[in-house]
């Protein structure tokens, strides 16, 4: 936004008296504050203060019944040097993040297919998007059932097709559980990615394509040099959402595997929950929360850099 849009400049240009706009500016500031206040208050109450509280707690030894005692970096030391579950959870979280690009590519494929005057495109669009608004707890239950060894569709289909001869316990297997939960996650969010990408696709000016066609540019080149660059803000938005999703997809793992078998599907967020509510180690859980937050911050920063230092549609000043 250029400075010429600000009310102050406007007022000056409109030729209002100096004493006037001094007062007006105060009023303006008060108004902006008023407008921001409710939202900021909510974020302060439910995000910033809790995070700060966690940060303090992570240097203490505390449980609901005992007064806090300062212990310095003890929790961090424990986490980084002795706690292999923490590292498993961290690694799994990174795998989960790594799955987001797969989903985004699939979503891009679908978006390209439905973005045109194809008959019935809106029906396909609706169907693909239909899974996103569903309650995640319910999605977890549905897919647990899909994966079931006996009554599940997937085992049945694989057996009918002769691919396997004994039912596979997808969610009970160390090797398959993570992939299975990720598939479910992709199933649920792919519609959302698709809509974001569709929005991006439709923002690309048609004349670019027409010009390319007149020049006889091959189709894959059009995609590479016109579509993809123009889609960058949308892709970045998808990536950020995927990143956030990987840190917050608690409900799905909680319902489907609860982190098991072993810790094969443990994510940082489920581990934090278990530490806090299963083992009453709120202090230690707080330390893991802080590390998770820092990691997320770093990754978002990195994604922003990769997207060209400009967080696309999210923030342009």
């Amino acid at each position: 936004m250029t400075p010429s849009g600000s009310p102050a400049h406007l007022a000056r240009r409109a030729g209002t008296g100096t004493g006037w706009w001094g007062r007006k500016r105060t009023r303006q500031a008060a108004l902006i504050l008023c407008f921001l206040l409710p939202s900021l208050a909510i974020f302060l109450l439910y995000r910033v203060i809790p995070l700060g509280w966690n940060a303090i707690l992570s240097f203490q030894s505390w449980s609901p019944m005992r007064p806090p005692r300062w212990v310095g970096f003890e929790h961090y030391e424990e986490m980084l040097f002795y706690d292999d579950i923490f590292w498993t959870a961290l690694w799994n979280t990174l795998i989960w993040i790594g799955a987001a690009p797969v989903a985004i590519i699939l979503a891009l494929g679908i978006a390209l297919l439905v973005n045109s005057d194809l008959k019935g495109a809106s029906v396909y669009r609706t169907i693909v998007f239909l899974s996103y608004p569903l309650m995640t707890v319910a999605v977890g239950i549905i897919w647990r059932w899909m994966y079931d060894e006996r009554g599940g569709f997937i085992n049945w289909a694989l057996r009918i097709a002769g691919i396997i001869d004994r039912p596979l316990g997808f969610l009970q297997s160390f090797d398959l559980a993570m992939a299975s939960v990720i598939v479910t996650d992709i199933w649920q969010v792919i519609g959302f990615y698709m809509i974001i990408l569709l929005t991006g696709l439709q923002q690309i000016p048609q004349h670019l394509y027409e010009a390319a066609r007149v020049d006889g540019v091959p189709r894959h080149a059009v995609f590479l040099y016109v579509t993809l660059p123009m889609l960058r803000p949308s892709l970045f938005l998808c990536a950020v959402i995927g990143l956030l999703n990987s840190f917050t997809s608690f409900d799905l793992v909680y319902v489907m595997t609860n982190g098991g078998p072993g810790h094969a599907t443990e994510l940082l967020i489920t581990y934090i929950y278990k530490l806090g509510f299963g083992q009453t180690k709120f202090d230690y859980a707080a330390a893991v929360t802080v590390v998770q937050f820092l990691l997320l911050l770093a990754l978002t920063f990195l994604a922003n850099r990769l997207a060209g230092g400009n967080a696309g549609a999210v923030e342009k000043d």
Partner: peptide, 19 residues
């Protein structure tokens, strides 16, 4: 108890399932 259980069971499970 809860912490010991969480330390013990996943290891046992790995052995039982041949990991």
């Amino acid at each position: 108890d809860a912490r010991v259980k969480d330390a013990f069971w996943p290891e046992l499970q790995s052995a039982l399932l041949g990991r």
